[in-house]
Design a protein around this nucleic acid. Structure first.
Lengths: 126, 126
DNA sequence: ACTATTGTACTATAATATTAGTACAATAGT
DNA sequence: ACTATTGTACTAATATTATAGTACAATAGT
């Protein structure tokens, strides 16, 4: 699988958060495909030079989120049917995500109008 | 001066890192201008509901980086030699932000239409 | 049955981040 | 000289993050 995920020890973002995001991004970007096997907890820890506990906790969290499926003694795999959260949970996630995004975009000095217009220009269904 | 900087307690990024980034962004976006006075250590701590030590450490770090200049008993000021980001650079930042935001929001199972509608409902100027 | 592999569950420890509180040093204005 | 304000420098306590090590549970394959 080569290095589908990487982390940066000098990044102030906690390792577990970096790893979770890296895996989610790898899946979203298609570098990790549904059904594909992730490295084992121990192997990924070695590869990334971090502790196995940190990797394990990320896998547990991703399992809880339905992003991966784990089969004991076998391995951890990207979920086939990216098992969606409940609508309530998805909305909560979207709220948090949007909150941070708006905050950051505003901090760059853009107005909400500009932000929305930019996003509209980037969206698929326009 | 209103709130030129904000932070998000639920963001896994450490507060000090969020604050440093927020101040740098505010300067880059021109919301804090060269020579302008930042809030006092104590006041900003109150505003952001974080500890004064955390703010103080960020100011020290920004001073070290030459981003701000401090005058004891007077205050902390944006360095005169600041060069705000060009519109081009700010747009590049916005593009990156938006890209990952859209990616993650889509991964939550929302359509671009839904995402945009949600954001519109959250925006100020609606 | 046996073995190797894998995820999981602990304990313990260290490192980092955050808070609370106090005190001191430098500056401006009265 | 005095006072208020501000940055700075501490100590102490708590919370979060990360590491090290060990053991157990489930699965696949022999």
């Amino acid at each position: 699988m080569a290095n589908a995920v990487t982390i940066d020890p000098s990044d102030p973002l906690p390792l577990y958060a970096q790893l979770e995001r890296a895996i989610r991004d790898a899946i979203a970007a298609g570098r990790l495909r549904p059904g594909e096997k992730l490295p084992t907890v121990r192997q990924l820890a070695v590869d990334l030079r971090i502790n196995a506990n940190t990797v394990a906790k990320v896998y547990v969290e991703l399992e809880r989120a339905g992003v991966v499926e784990t089969r004991r003694g076998v391995g951890t795999f990207v979920s086939e049917s990216q098992t969606p959260l409940t609508l309530r949970d998805r909305k909560r996630e979207l709220a948090g995500l949007s909150e941070s995004y708006l905050l950051r975009a505003r901090q760059l000095g853009f107005s909400d109008k500009e932000i929305l217009e930019y996003l509209a220009s980037k969206s698929k269904e326009v």
